[in-house]
Design a protein around this nucleic acid. Structure first.
Lengths: 338, 338
DNA sequence: ATAACTTAGTTAAGCGTTTTCCTATTTTTA
DNA sequence: TAAAAATAGGAAAACGCTTAACTAAGTTAT
């Protein structure tokens, strides 16, 4: 592999000039510039990022930190979308993505080292459960960081997330408008930062506005997996007074509800209306197709990186949290209460 | 952030000694070593990977190259598992993962640059369609590389993949043992390297061994999405002579088949037996639960990295392709032909 | 007692860039 | 037409680490 000296020699200039040409610094004549570029072409030269990082203090690498604890979070298909949005946007701007799937137990491991070692110019952290330490580690170093999700609970700075409140509100309002008054809610894990609280708040607000009251007995918790939705729905569907509709805080848990309902001989949507959250690709293909709240996952990644660039390149310290709009997608799993 | 000089000064030694301590080179006295380590601790020092990479020619970063063309491949939940296997194994060995989602159209973009610039010590490429260039780019530089999937068609070197042949063979054999003779096959895209050919070969072999002949009219193609399975199954299920069983080369397409069958009033498994491939987490939760071939996705990532380390650390040039066993999971979507 | 090792630690070069000063030439301004 | 300003390019230091080569002291073998 050729280095900057090879190029300089071939173009008959100094390495300083080569560097200037490559970084578009002014005061290089057109002829010289062309000669250098020709040499670069001939040698198929590309500058060593390691060397560049050493002088520059810029590595053109962003960290993407995703908690790997617990395992089941990782089966979320939306996550892949987020990753895709992050990677593509970074790449469009000539940045690369270093992936860190942090385990809480890690101390001094490769992942920690990378976050501490000037190897990345900034980071995106996917916020999940309370008690993740990666974010603090980054902040302590003053590294630019953008959260996907809710940072430190509901701190309205430097994060990007969907409008969870609104989504839940719309979901429940939709059910109420269909005549439902007994509405069960399956939440995600209670210690999942921010999002679940917001969705619960949205759901409650919708009830309140309709003059209905929230029945704590109709609130259960799952862990986002389909299996947990199945379990949670037992509580709701096998009690004496069962709800006529269920709002599940993600689609996968909703599939669990469907399965349970089927087993109990309940027909959707006639006997039970069901609204999910996420709009995973499968949602439209279920039987009946699932009414749900669409969340812009790729977009979350995209916006997070764009915002991170503002912090990195413009030296900004903070920005107002970006809340991305969600959309109610009405399909076949909800119907008017008869 | 402190550097090696700070540590050296504090410990009253030369930087060389610090470096030796940190890399466990012999000929450092216990006392000195302890003094250095104490200084490291006090200063919370960790060496700059950039600088280290410059001298070392080791970056402790592996590239993970995943084609991003076409989009729909990316919705594969198995992919996340593979990524997880790769990342975790790399991390366990103090390596990090640089994610590259290559678009074919990219030339000279961030991703290409990273692959050419001595920034990674090796790479894992996820093989999908023919004509991907990232692999060649890496090979041209002599960078160690392991493929997940089938390298250059069926080249039996330096790759890791599941036993696609065996999986398809078992799937179809299972159907035959249940008495089915008219078996439809929904393949993935024909230009998907290796895997589809192998699965088709497996299916044909099973038929042949049972003295049945392969009916080309019962072979259709999808693109791995549920929607394409739905479309493909129309061809199979709406003809005059329809198969009594279908082998779908992935689970998502199988869900499309289920949907179509339901629409046509066909009951699974009585009227139609269905076998998928992958065993995605949803498979067990479908109605009926899907009989399928389980593929070890996390394991593929894990093995790929392990093998890559052999190439990098031991300087090996090649290894025999690792074929990971698959497993037939019999659930409710298949039954004896009556 | 001397030669030959072994151990412990240091010096300084080198990895491949970028960037800050410089110098020299050309162009503009008054 | 002289001074000032703009343009073009180069020399060399700096980034933070590793490592080859070296020195010096202590240990062992003869």
């Amino acid at each position: 592999m050729s280095n900057i000296y090879d190029v300089a020699r071939l173009a008959n200039v100094s390495t300083a000039t080569v560097s200037k040409v490559l970084s578009n610094t002014p005061y290089v004549s057109v002829q010289t510039k062309e000669r250098v570029l020709e040499a670069v072409r001939q040698l198929d030269y590309s500058p060593s990022l390691a060397a560049r990082g050493l002088t520059n203090r810029r590595t053109y690498i962003l960290g993407l930190v995703i908690p790997n604890d617990p395992d089941y979070l990782f089966t979320d298909p939306q996550l892949l979308e987020v990753i895709r949005g992050v990677e593509n946007t970074a790449n469009d701007n000539d940045y690369n993505i270093l992936l860190s799937m942090a385990k809480k137990t890690d101390q001094g491991s490769a992942y920690t080292r990378v976050l501490r070692t000037g190897y990345i110019d900034g980071a995106i952290t996917v916020e999940t459960f309370e008690g993740e330490t990666a974010g603090k580690l980054l902040d302590d170093q003053g590294l630019p960081r953008v959260s996907i999700g809710y940072r430190n609970g509901l701190n309205p700075l430097n994060s990007v997330h969907s409008d969870d409140y609104r989504g839940a509100y719309e979901a429940v309002k939709h059910l109420i408008e269909l005549g439902h008054q007994q509405i069960g809610v399956i939440s995600g894990p209670a210690n999942f930062v921010g999002a679940m609280e917001e969705r619960l708040r949205g759901a409650k607000t919708a009830l309140l506005e309709a003059g209905l009251e929230f029945n704590p007995g109709f609130l259960t918790y799952g862990d986002f997996t389909a299996e947990s939705g199945y379990q949670a729905s037992r509580v709701l569907l096998e009690g004496t007074a069962r709800p006529t509709a269920i709002f599940s805080m993600n689609d996968r848990m909703a599939t669990g509800v469907m399965r349970r309902a089927r087993e109990l001989g309940l027909k959707l949507p006639e006997d039970l209306s069901l609204v999910g959250f996420d709009d995973i690709s499968l949602a439209a293909l279920l039987d009946p197709p699932l009414t749900t709240i669409r969340q812009p996952s790729v977009e979350q990644g995209r916006v997070a990186v764009t915002k991170l660039f503002e912090l990195i390149k413009e030296g900004k310290k903070e920005f107002e949290t970006v809340v991305l709009p969600v959309e109610l997608i009405v399909r076949g799993s909800t119907t008017r209460l008869n």
